[in-house]
Lab assay of single mutants.
Amino acid sequence: RPRTAFTQNQIEVLENVFRVNCYPGIDIREDLAQKLNLEEDRIQIWFQNRRAKLKR
């Protein structure tokens, strides 16, 4: 699968959610997927990668 290119707006929304909860449940991820026009699994991976970035 090709790399997902997130828009600046999508990143802002994801970062705002991350600040509140870095482990969002499936319900939050599915809601975000619908709002941001992305697949839920892409959102899940984004949070996984963002948590890894935080640990660095």
Rank of each mutant, 00 (worst) to 15 (best):
L38T: 13
A33R: 03
G25E: 11
E15I: 04
I43C: 01
L36D: 01
D27N: 12
N49H: 08
I45W: 15
R19V: 09
L14W: 03
V17G: 00
L38G: 00
R51Q: 05
R42L: 09
N16A: 06
D31Q: 11
I43R: 00
E39W: 02
K35W: 02
F6M: 13
Q48D: 08
A52H: 11
L38F: 12
A33E: 01
G25L: 01
A33T: 03
K35D: 04
V20G: 09
C22G: 09
K53G: 09
I11W: 07
N9L: 12
N9H: 13
Q8Y: 07
R50H: 08
V17W: 00
Q48T: 15
G25H: 14
L54K: 10
L14K: 04
L14F: 02
K35L: 05
N37C: 09
C22D: 11
V20I: 13
N49I: 05
R19T: 12
I28A: 10
I26W: 10
E15A: 01
L14A: 00
R50S: 03
F18Q: 00
R29W: 09
A33V: 06
R42E: 14
V13E: 13
T7D: 14
D31N: 13
L14M: 07
Q48K: 13
A52K: 11
Y23D: 08
R51E: 03
V13A: 07
A5M: 15
N16S: 11
D31H: 06
I26P: 12
K55E: 15
I45Y: 12
R51A: 06
E15K: 00
E12K: 15
E15R: 05
D31G: 09
A52C: 09
W46P: 06
R51W: 02
L32E: 01
T7L: 06
L54I: 13
V20C: 08
L54D: 11
I45H: 09
A33Y: 06
E39M: 04
R1A: 15
Q10P: 00
L14E: 01
R3Q: 14
L14R: 01
I28C: 04
R19N: 08
K55C: 07
L54N: 14
Q8A: 14
N49M: 12
D31C: 05
T7Q: 04
V13Y: 02
Q34E: 10
L36M: 10
I26S: 10
E12T: 12
F6N: 05
P24T: 00
I28R: 03
E12S: 12
Q48M: 11
R50Y: 04
D27W: 04
R1N: 15
I43D: 03
Q34F: 01
V17I: 10
N49E: 15
E40T: 10
Q34P: 03
T7M: 07
R51I: 07
L36V: 00
K35Y: 06
Q8C: 09
R1M: 12
E30D: 09
E12N: 09
D31P: 03
I11R: 05
Q34Y: 06
A52V: 06
R51T: 07
E30V: 09
T7C: 03
L54G: 15
A52S: 10
E39D: 15
N37Y: 03
L32W: 06
T4V: 12
G25W: 02
F6A: 01
Q48E: 10
R19Q: 09
W46Q: 00
A33M: 08
C22F: 05
R1C: 13
R56G: 13
F18Y: 10
L54Q: 12
D31W: 04
R3Y: 15
G25C: 07
R51P: 00
C22R: 12
Q34N: 08
Q8K: 09
R56P: 14
F47R: 00
T4F: 12
N16E: 10
Q10S: 01
I26G: 07
R29M: 15
E30M: 09
R42T: 14
F47E: 00
E30Y: 04
N49L: 09
N21M: 11
N9F: 08
T7F: 02
D41M: 09
D31M: 07
K53Q: 14
R19M: 04
F18C: 03
N21Y: 04
I26T: 07
Q10G: 04
F6D: 03
R50D: 05
N37W: 01
N21V: 04
D27H: 05
Q48S: 12
N37A: 07
V17Q: 06
P2H: 15
R50G: 01
I28G: 02
L38H: 04
Y23F: 06
F6P: 00
E15F: 00
I11H: 12
I26Y: 09
Q48A: 14
Q8E: 12
K35N: 07
I26V: 11
E39V: 03
Q34I: 10
I28S: 05
A52Q: 09
K55S: 06
Q8G: 06
R19C: 06
Q44K: 14
V17M: 08
G25D: 11
Q10C: 01
L32K: 01
E39L: 05
Q44H: 15
I43G: 00
P24M: 01
Q8L: 04
A52D: 11
E30K: 14
L36F: 14
G25R: 03
V17A: 11
F6Q: 03
E15L: 02
L36T: 02
Y23Q: 08
L38M: 07
L36N: 04
Q48C: 05
A52E: 13
N9W: 06
E40K: 03
K55R: 06
K53V: 08
D31T: 04
L36R: 00
R19F: 05
D41Q: 12
A52R: 08
N21T: 09
E15C: 04
G25P: 14
N49G: 04
N49F: 03
E40F: 10
L32C: 00
I45F: 14
Q34G: 09
E39I: 00
T4Y: 09
V20K: 13
E40S: 09
F18N: 00
